[in-house]
Amino acid sequence: MSESITLNTVGRVTTLTISRPAKRNAITQAMYGAMAAALNDYAQSDDIRAFVITGSEDYFTAGNDLQDFSMANPNEENPPVEQFLTAISTCPKPVIAAVNGPAIGVGLTMLLHCDLVFASESATFNAPFVKLALVPEAASSLLLSASVGMAVANDILLAGRVLTAQEAHGYGLISRVFEDCDLAEEAGKIAAHVADAAPQSMRLSKSLIRHRQDQVATQMQRESEIFVAQLKSPEFAEVVSAMMQKRAPKFS
């Protein structure tokens, strides 16, 4: 388990906390591996019946650690990020997100695979893939438009629009909004209620609701192939160089 990923189990609920506050909870490959392992363990557990994902301090996650990704082997088969996306998108049991601050990139797209999403009033949501010379991932190019509509999805994915918690709730991207100080407690109460439900009924209900899994897996694979190609591109190299030099990227 990565030291930047912590797990805490109370009763039948496990909470995974993304805990790398010095980097705004940006996720590395090692962290993805730990998150995938935790979700897979949860899927196979008979004792744990609800799983909550949240962030430490005042950030959910700033998304991928781009410096870490720039050093990864782009030809690696089934890299940790894909392991995580597969684990969260195929988990047969309820996955709950408690978004306690900015949710950027995968911080937003992972929510599309969660069954309940709660957010604090100060939470924001954006997916700046194009700004980073990348493309959408986690089947967000399919699922986000299904959630918020094509026009809003394009505004988020292409124009980089940032949504407030109230806007995200209005568009149906999140389930409920709580005051910042109440989020953890309220999400915990609902998770405990979910964990007390009939487990087989919960699994079957989730499988009925998420019946388009084949489409999701196919789209996720298409996105992954293009994403990896962009990681090798001059455009992405320019973005990383510009970030290191603290300047705006130049695409000519």
Rank of each mutant, 00 (worst) to 15 (best):
S2G: 05
E3M: 14
I5D: 05
T6H: 06
V10Q: 12
G11Y: 00
V13L: 06
T14L: 01
L16A: 13
L16K: 01
R24N: 13
N25V: 02
I27C: 02
M31S: 08
A37K: 04
A37H: 00
L39Y: 05
L39K: 04
Y42I: 04
Q44R: 14
D46H: 09
D46I: 04
A50I: 08
A50L: 05
F51V: 10
F51I: 08
V52M: 00
V52K: 02
I53A: 11
T54W: 01
E57Q: 13
E57R: 13
Y59D: 01
F60T: 00
T61I: 02
A62L: 10
N64W: 00
N64T: 12
N64M: 07
Q67P: 00
D68E: 03
S70I: 01
S70F: 06
M71I: 01
P74Q: 03
N75I: 10
E76T: 10
E77G: 08
P79D: 03
P80S: 09
V81G: 00
C91T: 14
C91N: 15
P92C: 11
P94Y: 09
V95R: 05
A97Y: 12
A97P: 08
A98T: 15
N100K: 14
G101S: 13
P102H: 02
I104C: 06
T109M: 14
M110E: 15
L111N: 11
V117N: 09
F118A: 03
S120T: 07
A127V: 05
A127I: 02
P128N: 11
F129T: 07
K131D: 14
K131C: 05
L134G: 04
V135H: 04
E137N: 12
S140Y: 01
S141H: 09
S141W: 04
L143R: 06
S147V: 09
M150R: 15
M150N: 15
V152H: 05
L157V: 11
L158N: 15
L163T: 07
A165R: 08
E167Q: 15
H169L: 15
G170P: 03
G172F: 11
L173C: 08
C181Q: 14
C181G: 11
D182C: 09
D182N: 15
L183V: 10
A184T: 06
E185F: 04
E185K: 14
E186R: 15
A187I: 08
I190Y: 12
A191H: 04
A191L: 13
A192Q: 08
A192P: 00
V194G: 00
V194F: 09
D196L: 03
A197D: 07
P199M: 13
M202P: 03
R203P: 00
R203S: 03
L208G: 04
I209M: 07
D214R: 14
D214S: 13
Q219P: 01
Q219C: 10
M220D: 03
M220K: 10
Q221K: 14
E223N: 05
S224C: 04
S224L: 07
K232I: 06
E235K: 09
F236R: 06
F236T: 04
A237H: 11
E238R: 05
E238L: 10
E238Q: 04
V239M: 09
V240E: 07
V240P: 05
V240D: 08
M243S: 07
Q245V: 03
Q245G: 04
K246C: 12
A248F: 09
